[in-house]
């Protein structure tokens, strides 16, 4: 589906969504409370059918986190980037999309491990890479590790 039609459609789903046509993908930014709802619609709607979550990541922008979901539709072959901002750095939380895309399961565990973002309703919210007694979240920008990181 063309990007502008997709844009209209998403505008219908969630009117407050902020949509920018990126160079590569159409980018949709929503509030984190609306994310799961929109994601569900995007997946289940006949016209969008974003059934393939090919990447899920988080970015630390110093004062907030941005969750980034790269979505693909295997029937319509269109892509979309879904973003949600998390402003709370102390106790970041967001709804899990694990019930929609199983692929999110490991990605979210990784993000929990390395960014400390907690996913609500995730079936198995454990650390995936690091030890359970690891202090801090390495991929955050304010992470300091004097032992293992050698500054040059």
């Amino acid at each position: 589906m063309e990007n502008n039609k997709l844009q209209e459609l998403i505008q219908n789903f969630t009117p407050e969504a902020e949509i920018t046509a990126g160079k590569q993908f159409l980018t949709v930014t929503v509030d984190k409370s609306r994310l799961h709802e929109l994601a569900k619609k995007l997946k289940e709607s006949e016209e969008t059918q974003f059934d393939y979550l090919f990447c899920e990541s988080a970015v630390d922008y110093n004062d907030y986190f941005m969750m980034v979901y790269h979505l693909d539709s295997t029937t319509h072959r269109h892509q979309l980037v879904l973003k949600a901002k998390i402003t709370d750095r102390e106790n970041p939380e967001i709804d899990s999309v694990c019930d929609l895309w199983e692929a999110a399961n490991y990605h979210e565990r990784e993000i929990f491990d390395l960014f400390g973002i907690r996913f609500i309703n995730h079936p198995d919210m454990r650390k995936i890479f690091l030890d359970n007694d690891w202090v801090g979240f390495p991929l955050r920008k304010d992470y300091v590790d004097k032992v293992n990181v050698v500054e040059r």
């Binding site: 970015v59 630390d60 199983e102």
Partner: peptide, 24 residues
């Protein structure tokens, strides 16, 4: 996935690795 802030270093670089997803 590269997020750039205009510097010579990537601001964030994420690799979507196939094995990680194929393990699930």
């Amino acid at each position: 996935y590269i997020v750039s802030d205009g510097n010579k270093n990537p601001y964030r670089m994420k690799f979507r690795s196939p094995n990680f997803c194929n393990l699930a």
